[in-house]
C-alpha cells in the first residue's frame, strides 16, 4: 500500500476519533462511548445477514465483533442482552431513526430509543441462577458477547455443513442446543462439576442434549425471562399493536 493511501486512511481515522457516539448500554445502565461503524462493518453485517436465513450464527458473530471494535471502553463487559440496544443506538446515531418494520412500513424509533434508560432490567438479570432437578444442578447466567461469539463460530461451521447437506431439521435442533449452551456456566451432577469452557462448545453439546426434559424446561423459562428483556429494545407499539424491529440487512442499509 502506498504512503498516499496510509495518509488518507490516517486522516479519515483522525476525524473518526473525534466523532464519538454516546450509546446506551442496558447492563451498564449508562451511555458508553462508541466510534461510528465503518463501511467495512456495514459490508460485513449486510453480507452476513444475507447469507442464509437459517444460519444466523455468522450474522451474530459479525454483530459482536463490530460492537467490540467500536466500543471505546474496552474494559466493560458487554452482554448479549445489550446487543439489540447497541445496534439500534449505532443505527439511529449514524443512519437516522426511520427504520423498516415491514416490507412497506417504516417507523421513527427516535422517541422510543430515547426512553431506553427507563427500560429497567430485572434485578436478578446478571446474577447466577441455579436450577435443580433430581440432584442435577445448573448454574446459568446471560452470556457475554465474547461467549456468544465463541459458541457461534463453532455453530456456524456445523450449520453450514448441515445446510450444505440439506439437513434443515438437524440445523434447527442444534441451533437450540447451542443457544442453551451459552447460558450454562456449570453443571453439578453425581458429585462432579463440569465447568463450561464455551470455546469447547462442540464437546459440551452432548452434555446439554443429555439433560432431563424437566431441567431443560426450567432452563428455557430462565432464558425466556432474559430474552424478553433483550427484545424489549426492539419491540415497538404501532397502530395499537406490538411490532418487532428486525435487525437484518435492510436495517443497516440505511433506507
Amino acid at each position: 500500500m502506498s504512503q498516499d493511501i496510509n495518509d488518507i486512511i490516517g486522516a479519515i481515522e483522525s476525524v473518526s476519533r473525534q466523532n464519538t457516539l454516546d450509546i446506551f448500554v442496558p447492563t451498564q445502565n449508562r451511555t458508553v462511548k462508541f466510534r461510528p461503524m465503518t463501511v467495512k462493518h456495514q459490508k460485513q453485517i449486510i453480507s452476513s445477514a444475507l447469507e442464509n436465513s437459517l444460519n444466523t450464527a455468522h450474522f451474530h458473530v459479525e454483530c459482536n465483533n463490530i460492537i467490540s471494535e467500536c466500543c471505546l471502553e474496552p474494559d466493560i463487559e458487554i452482554y448479549v442482552i445489550d446487543r439489540n440496544a447497541i445496534l439500534v443506538g449505532l443505527r439511529v446515531n449514524m443512519l437516522g431513526s426511520i427504520v423498516p418494520i415491514s416490507d412497506d412500513k417504516t417507523y421513527d424509533i427516535r422517541d422510543f430509543y430515547e426512553q431506553y434508560s427507563t427500560l429497567n432490567p430485572p434485578e436478578d438479570l446478571l446474577n447466577n441462577i441455579t436450577l435443580e432437578y433430581n440432584g442435577i444442578k445448573i448454574e446459568t447466567k446471560p452470556p457475554t458477547v465474547k461467549i456468544d461469539g465463541e459458541v457461534n463460530k463453532i455453530a456456524k461451521k456445523i450449520f453450514d455443513k448441515h445446510l450444505e447437506e440439506k439437513k434443515v431439521k438437524e440445523t434447527v435442533t442444534e441451533a437450540i442446543v447451542f443457544e442453551i449452551l451459552k447460558y450454562i456456566h456449570k453443571i453439578h451432577a453425581a458429585g462432579k462439576t463440569i465447568e463450561f469452557d464455551h470455546s469447547n462448545a462442540l464437546n459440551l453439546a452432548p452434555v446439554v442434549e443429555a439433560l432431563p426434559l424437566t431441567l431443560s424446561k426450567k432452563l428455557f423459562d430462565a432464558i425466556d425471562h432474559v430474552k424478553q428483556y433483550e427484545n424489549s429494545f426492539t419491540t415497538v407499539e404501532t397502530d395499537g399493536e406490538k411490532q418487532s424491529i428486525i435487525i437484518d440487512a435492510r436495517f443497516f442499509n440505511g433506507d
Binding site: I12, P36, M37, T38, V39, H41, M94, F252, G254
Partner: peptide
Amino acid sequence: TDRRKLIESLDGSVFGHVSK
C-alpha cells in the same frame, strides 16, 4: 484493492447513501 481498503475505513453512514 487499496481503494477498497480506503472506502472501508470511511464512516458507515456513507454506505446507505452510496447504495441509494
